[in-house]
Design a protein around this nucleic acid. Structure first.
Length: 276
DNA sequence: CCCTGCCTGCTG
DNA sequence: CAGCAGGCAGGG
């Protein structure tokens, strides 16, 4: 169920544990999670290859190999990556196991099976994963009030829906769009074109600030990460509005409300985030 | 633009 | 037991 802060956390905790290791074997229990190429080709191309490093782009993870091929994966709602010793009990819904040269395993589990893997050969253009269509990273200096206004300023749709558009800013999902709008004091259902320049400026500040804050709160050691099986995110106690409908606003102590915006559950403070 | 489907598991 | 869950693609 990860959004950018969780995906970044996974990247930070997994990367040092796989860097420089060779993939000795791959077990694929559910071939449908390999979106490209076929699962057989996926294995053939990867077995024997060495992992050089790992990257995150939006909510995608990228595992780069020494031969310049790369694995791209998206965890969607319930996908999970875990490094375990060889004989560690297997999580339910484990779909792929990469057997690594230090005898550990990189395991992918996913209850709802929405998560996907792609393997791109060196130089192969990625028309598959959607990663090429992503907008800027939230920490990019290009994320300014002007950028937001150019992309959203004439849109009739709700600002919350705009923040979820991966092709403009990559990585924000339902949780952090609520958190961002709370911090910015903007009502989630406000039509984007009704925002003034002050509000675009506030969003440009709050977006990277908020995501960075939650990345830091998520910080975890490999040991702790294995203990919780990569399933829980420790930043959730720091969420100010998401999941807290009916509870008190941490700022003004009024009761937090819930509305549906673009089909998504949205929690906000009716005092701190007034509608026009 | 809105809506559905993809899945399983948990909550009310 | 229906309804819903933090994502996204695809169709109307």
């Amino acid at each position: 169920m990860p959004e950018l802060p969780e995906v970044e956390t996974i990247k930070r905790v997994i990367e040092p544990q796989i860097k420089g290791l060779t993939i000795n074997n791959i077990i694929i229990n559910k071939t449908e999670v390999i979106a490209h190429p076929t699962s057989d080709e996926f294995c053939d191309l990867l077995v024997g290859q060495t992992i050089s490093n790992m990257e995150r782009r939006g909510k995608f993870l990228i595992i780069l190999l020494n031969n310049n091929n790369k694995i791209i994966l998206h965890l969607r709602m319930t996908g999970c990556l875990l490094i375990t010793p060889e004989k560690y009990p297997e999580e339910k819904h484990t779909h792929i196991i990469f057997k690594l040269s230090n005898n550990n395993e990189l395991r992918f589990s996913d209850t709802r099976r929405f998560g996907r893997f792609w393997l791109l050969k060196k130089g192969e253009s990625d028309t598959f994963s959607g990663i090429e269509k992503l907008g800027i990273e939230p920490f990019d200096s290009k994320l300014t009030a002007e950028y937001l206004k150019v992309h959203f300023g004439k849109r009739k749709k709700a600002i919350k829906e705009c923040l979820l558009e991966q092709n403009v800013i990559a990585g924000i999902g339902n949780i952090y769009s609520d958190e961002i709008l709370f911090r910015a004091g903007i009502y989630p259902a406000r039509s984007a074109k009704s925002l003034n320049f002050e509000e675009w400026k506030r969003l440009a500040v709050v977006i990277p600030e908020c995501l960075l804050y939650f990345i830091e709160k998520n910080s975890i050691t490999p040991e702790e990460y294995l203990k919780i099986k990569g399933q829980d995110y420790r930043n959730t106690p720091f969420l100010q509005v998401y999941g807290s409908e009916g509870k008190l606003c941490p700022i003004c102590k009024d009761t937090l409300c819930r509305i549906v915006v673009g089909g998504r559950n949205s929690v906000y403070c009716p005092v701190c985030q007034k509608d026009l």
